[in-house]
């Protein structure tokens, strides 16, 4: 984790704000005058993790760039729920082209800014996991290898939600979607498939790759802020639960995201130039089952219990914990 957690202040830096913290130690989201880059009136479902993640990330970018931001958006939920004619929820200059080209469009914006000498204005491209790991992957890879001055943010809700919950290359093992139904001998998405885009991004050797979660706002904002202090291609992959597609309680969006992190299934880490340089330790490790059981898309693993699948998914989490050294190396600080 690239910032020092504050302890002893009742909640330290775990809550969004805290009146006991110095102003600079509170999140951007705690500010009364935060940008609300994505404003009220948007049509996201109740408890939408992506709407939340987008505001978290973009408000932090706005803060870091002194409001000098242009955003490019791939087609998807975020685009559709934010900008149906005649109402837009965006408070920032925002451009939507098509599903698979957001990284390239953003490269074009960055190139135009360079041509015009307006490099104080910064560019963010954003899309869901389908736009990122699947249809827009070619453009994304191109943007990476050219090291264009773009921060690409993937809001990963692990399937094509806008079209009604179909499998993407980011859909996790054994998850139900409408194209990986919970029927047959291996219900849900098969094991050992899918893409790990942060690792692929790292393989491009770009200046910064980071993962973040809506469940850890301080971590997310720190990474976004850091990303804006760097020029060149940067990639942040944010885990954003989707109550609709995950069949989870809208009130539990953050809880679910938190359990993904705390179980080790969604590791929070940072890589610079292709090398993992930091990770955010798990605070209180939980078995993957606690995460899975909250989501109807994994219901078939519990009725009857599929011990083999549960063990395999636990092994994935354990592997992450080992790979990224996610358990705290020092005991929790006391007085």
């Amino acid at each position: 984790m690239s910032y020092q957690r504050i302890k002893f202040y009742q909640t330290g830096t775990f809550t969004v704000g805290n009146r006991l913290l110095e102003e600079g130690e509170r999140t951007v989201q705690a500010q009364k005058d935060r940008t609300n880059s994505l404003n009220s009136g948007h049509r996201a479902c109740q408890g939408c993790g992506e709407a939340l993640g987008a505001r978290y990330a973009l408000d932090a970018v706005m803060r870091a760039t002194h409001n000098q931001l242009v955003a490019v958006n791939a087609t998807g939920c975020l685009e559709v729920f934010s900008s149906p004619y005649p109402e837009s929820a965006w408070q920032i200059p925002w451009l939507h082209s098509v599903f698979g080209n957001a990284p390239a469009v953003a490269s074009g914006v960055a190139a135009a800014l360079r041509a015009k000498g307006k490099t104080d204005i910064r560019v963010v491209a954003q899309g869901g996991d389908g736009a990122t790991v699947d249809i827009g992957f070619g453009c994304l890879s191109g943007m990476f290898e050219r090291n264009d001055d773009v921060l690409y943010i993937c809001y990963d809700n692990e399937a094509y939600m806008n079209t009604g919950v179909q499998r993407s290359g980011a859909t996790p093992a054994r998850a139900w979607t409408n194209t990986t139904q919970a029927v047959g001998t291996e219900p849900g998405n098969p094991m050992n498939v899918g893409k790990n885009l942060p690792r692929i991004a790292m393989a491009h050797g770009i200046p910064l790759v980071a993962t973040a979660s809506v469940a850890d706002l301080h971590d997310l904002e720190t990474k976004v802020t850091k990303a804006m202090s760097i020029r060149g291609a940067r990639y942040i992959h944010i885990h954003v639960p989707c109550p609709l597609g995950w069949k989870s309680d809208p009130a539990e969006t953050i809880k679910v995201a938190r359990l993904a992190v705390e179980s080790g299934l969604f590791p929070l880490f940072e890589a610079e130039g292709g090398v993992v340089t930091d990770r955010t330790p798990i605070r209180k490790q939980v078995p993957v089952e606690q995460y899975l059981v909250l989501q109807g898309r994994f219901e078939h693993l519990f009725s009857p219990r599929d011990e083999q699948a549960l063990a395999a998914i636990q092994a994935m989490a354990d592997r992450n914990i080992h790979l990224y050294a996610l358990l705290p190396t020092e005991p929790a600080m006391g007085t």
Binding site: Q10, R19, R26
Partner: peptide, 21 residues
């Protein structure tokens, strides 16, 4: 160390986590 049980202590979490501002 007080958890402020059942009483708002202005931690801004509700303000932050609302997807609809």
């Amino acid at each position: 160390r007080c958890l402020s049980c059942g009483n708002c202590f202005e931690c801004d979490t509700c303000y932050g986590v609302c997807p609809d501002n």
